[in-house]
């Protein structure tokens, strides 16, 4: 028996002719250049390895972002050590969900950006901050979508505005952008945003929220996401960027916490769930 998956269940070539491999369309099989040229250019049509939600919230003196460390291959838990929060410049964090290879491409683009920034700012003082990173990424993603070759991601940028107020904005693979005091990508926009908005009903209300309050709700969100999002894990990273109370104009702390665990898990609710698996009633 021929064990090539393409041959499974196939009648013999002598009778029916050769199998047309283009039907499966996994990739270009031929290696000679002529056939590669004849084959149409292929762009990303779907993400392969994916990261799930990024969630984020503003508070009085800064922002918190969180994302778990899982890279899924469909329903397979393929990687459990993917870092999806990226520090850019001194005081900005970028949280990325969606395709992991595109995430790594964006990571390289941002790296290059930082290098160029240093070359032309040898005297210092011109800092790459969150609004600048956000604008730049929105151009990158919009231009890629306009070439019909998107970077398959949804991104949240957190940091400070030029006037040192907290900054939080979103970009996705279409180039759509928006800002709010509570933001989440993917499943998080359904499961986490309602919880976050309970803390901050109006966008301006973040000024009444302390870091502790914000952090507690973010941890709650990560737990709820782990319960209900089948592509989420209970291992996550969390970044807190906070300006100091004494010198808000110049001083801030950037706290990157890795390998956090979703705490206080309780699966008692699971036994009451009906309608899934073997318990149909």
């Amino acid at each position: 028996m021929n064990h090539d998956p393409f041959q499974w269940g196939r009648p013999s070539n002598e009778t029916y002719g050769a199998y047309n491999h283009h039907i499966a369309n996994a990739s270009v099989r031929e290696t000679d250049h002529q056939s590669l040229d004849n084959f149409p250019k292929m762009n990303t049509q779907q993400p392969i390895i994916t990261g799930t939600s990024v969630i984020s919230v503003k508070f009085k003196d800064g922002v918190i972002l969180a994302a778990d460390n899982l890279g899924s291959y469909g329903s397979l838990l393929r990687f459990n050590n993917i870092e999806r929060l990226i520090k850019v410049g001194q005081e900005t964090v970028v949280g990325i969900s969606g395709d992991i290879s595109d995430l790594q491409q964006i990571e390289r683009i941002l790296d290059e950006l930082e290098t160029t920034e240093e070359v032309y700012d040898s005297d210092g003082g011109h800092n790459l901050r969150a609004p600048h990173v956000h604008e730049y990424l929105s151009r990158v993603l919009y231009n890629r979508r306009s070439k019909m070759n998107p970077l398959w991601n949804a991104i949240i940028v957190g940091g400070f505005n030029d006037d040192r107020t907290p900054f939080l904005k979103y970009i996705d693979l279409l180039g759509v952008t928006y800002g709010a005091s509570t933001l989440a990508t993917g499943f998080g926009s359904h499961l986490a945003v309602p919880l976050l908005r309970q803390l901050i009903p109006n966008d301006v209300d973040y000024v009444n929220v302390s870091e502790e309050q914000a952090r507690k709700v973010v941890e709650d969100c990560m737990r709820v996401l782990f319960y209900r999002d089948a592509r989420a894990s209970d291992k996550f990273s969390l970044v807190t960027i906070k300006r100091s109370a004494e010198e808000p104009d110049t001083s801030y702390t950037f706290n990157f916490e890795k390998e956090l665990k979703v705490e206080n898990q309780s699966w008692r609710f699971a036994k009451d769930i009906r309608g899934y698996g073997s318990q149909q009633q």
Partner: peptide
């Protein structure tokens, strides 16, 4: 201004 949402620095 278009790409980075910031004024060009004099040194750059």
């Amino acid at each position: 201004r278009m790409i980075f949402n910031r004024p060009l620095s004099t040194s750059k």
